[in-house]
Nucleic acid binder design. Structure first.
Length: 498
RNA sequence: GGCCCCAUCGUUCAGUGGUUAGGACACCGGCCUUUCACGCCGGCGACACGGGUUCAAAUCCCGUUGGGGUCACCA
């Protein structure tokens, strides 16, 4: 069997959105699974909508996801000549022809057909049988023309075997003589795409099911050119909660890959989630620790035929996106090797200007950093949580949460006295560990005849600014003796309500 | 509307003739506990409908309904 070659051909009309990301991911998985090459092709032909910035954004999105390609990015516009040559060849062979009908004429005919309740409203083929004289006349008039592919109805039907949807057959009576070159001389997608895929020796076309209907036309084109038809695999679409097709226009940033990067998703967790939207290995597995795990499990057979819903919640403060996506991210966040998590957190801390190079250098500081990540990550969902929720561990300047202040610190004015006394006890400790700190705290609690929770919760708020977090003795150790005592004394006045 | 595709809990993914229809997320309880999480235990919750075929149907066939795709000189 010859080498598998697939392609991802985004049109640069905006950022990379989840539909495109999923298509790219599946192509990438397929190539990694079967061994082959992925070619990236920017389909920028025509379109006032295509922009350089968009192409750049798409590339960045792919890179962030960790999707690598083997060839390209090619620019479809660089091959315009080839596309035109293919059209010319088709005309030369009599498989395509110039059509001089204007849009207005066509529109009028469609209206008429509609009025007459005819089911077929495509092109009627009137220019197909133009005599040489008629043609010459129209040319002399300087009438603009498009090139139409001549659909040979005699064959009856076109068929192809879709790797996902199975054998597919479309009656040729349903197809009209479709346009392959615009009046401005620029070939259309349906043709360019075929020419490009042939030139790039694409063996498997894995794309969205929205392309299912123009596949027959493309099969006809391949055959007319005498080219081998690639295998097609169409993937069911991703819909929004209201079952509408996902689009950048309608859904905004929640469907942009960039959104997930900016909100603290791990690239791989995002891929893991995307892969599960419309695919499964046939078992109940959901977490794939590494790309290798997923690649191994991936099969085209596992791709679903039915559309899936990307269940994002608009305006829900608890779920910024599909809850499952958040869950998968959280799973990876707290189970992945901490050494691999570290660089991601570093990036976040650096961006927030609270990073210290010592945490990267090895030795004690490095160990502390990793231990601290281990300590806090279990309750986090996003990488961004490390700069917000975990801030007190990495920086002495941390915000005091109003609610926690009220509930724990100001619960009893006497805490203004208790906290410094706790600091004194902790200061006196020769050995500062889980056992000694707990013993010290409990001893104080006993002497004061108060509930442990009163002091513990107040200490947590004083130390971290938050009412929630790791066990208090773990916090003591993570902060260290000096910082713990200093903060307890520093924040004590807050208990009195200042 | 024509043509095409699809149809299992709210979402997602299993289940391809015989299952108490399973897992995950979400939701609701409980346990754990100094808080919040994690974890553990439990609950809620689906085969769209109607006909067939069969001893037996979520699984096969037909129809209906519902949803989606597409009908461009966009890609």
């Amino acid at each position: 069997m010859s080498e598998i070659r697939v392609r991802f051909p985004p049109s640069p009309t905006g950022y990379l959105h989840i539909g495109g990301a999923r298509t790219a991911l599946y192509n990438w998985l397929l190539v990694k699974k079967l061994g082959g090459k992925l070619v990236l092709r920017i389909e920028d032909t025509d379109e006032e909508r295509s922009t350089e910035a968009s192409a750049q954004a798409i590339l960045e999105g792919l890179e962030w996801m960790g999707i690598t390609w083997d060839e390209g990015p090619y620019l479809q516009s660089d091959f315009a000549e080839e596309h035109r040559a293919a059209a010319d060849e088709l005309v030369r062979q009599g498989k395509a022809y110039r059509c001089y009908c204007t849009r207005e004429e066509l529109a009028a005919k469609r209206e008429a057909a509609k009025a007459a309740k005819q089911s077929f409203q495509g092109y009627d083929g009137s220019c197909r049988s133009l005599s040489e004289d008629q043609r010459a006349l129209l040319e002399d008039q300087g009438r603009p023309w498009v090139v139409r592919f001549k659909v040979d109805r005699g064959e009856g039907a076109v068929s192809f075997d879709d790797l996902v949807f199975g054998p597919t057959e479309v009656s040729l009576a349903e197809l009209d003589d479709f346009v392959i070159v615009r009046s401005n001389g620029v070939p259309l997608y349906v043709l360019s795409n075929v020419v490009d895929d042939h030139r790039d020796r694409i063996t498997h076309v894995l794309r969205g099911a929205d392309h299912l209907v123009n596949t027959p036309k493309q099969v006809l084109l391949y055959r007319a050119m005498g080219w081998e038809v690639p295998a097609f695999a169409h993937m069911a679409l991703t819909l929004d909660p209201k079952k509408a097709k996902i689009s950048k226009r309608r859904h905004g940033e929640v469907v942009a890959v960039q959104f997930y990067r900016d909100h603290g998703f791990l690239p791989w967790a995002f891929c893991n989630f995307m892969a599960l939207l419309g695919w499964s290995a046939g078992d109940d597995r959901e977490i794939y620790e590494t790309p290798e795990d997923l690649i191994q499990a991936f099969t085209i057979e596992g791709m679903a035929k039915r559309n899936s819903v990307f269940n994002y919640r608009k305006g829900d403060p608890k779920f910024i996106t599909d809850p499952k996506a958040i869950h998968i991210n959280a799973q990876h966040l707290r189970t992945m090797p901490v050494e691999i998590l570290a660089p991601h957190v570093k990036q976040q801390l650096e961006a927030a200007s609270i990073w210290s190079d010592a945490w990267d250098a090895g030795g004690e500081e490095r160990d502390w950093f990793l231990r601290t990540l281990e300590l806090v990550r279990v309750r986090y969902n996003f990488l961004t949580d490390f700069v917000t929720l975990a801030r007190a561990f990495f920086d002495d300047d941390y915000p005091m949460e109003e609610k926690a202040l009220r509930k724990s610190l100001r619960k009893d004015p006497a805490l203004a006295d208790y906290l410094p006394r706790l600091a004194d006890r902790l200061d006196d400790l020769e050995i500062f560990d889980l056992e000694t700190t707990e013993a010290a705290l409990r001893a104080l609690v006993d002497e004061l005849s108060i509930k442990p929770g009163l002091l513990i919760n107040a200490a947590r708020v004083a130390l971290t600014g938050q009412g929630v977090g790791p066990g208090i003795f773990d916090v003591f150790l993570a902060l260290g003796q000096a910082r713990t005592c200093a903060r307890l004394r520093e924040k004590a006045p807050l208990c009195a309500g200042e």
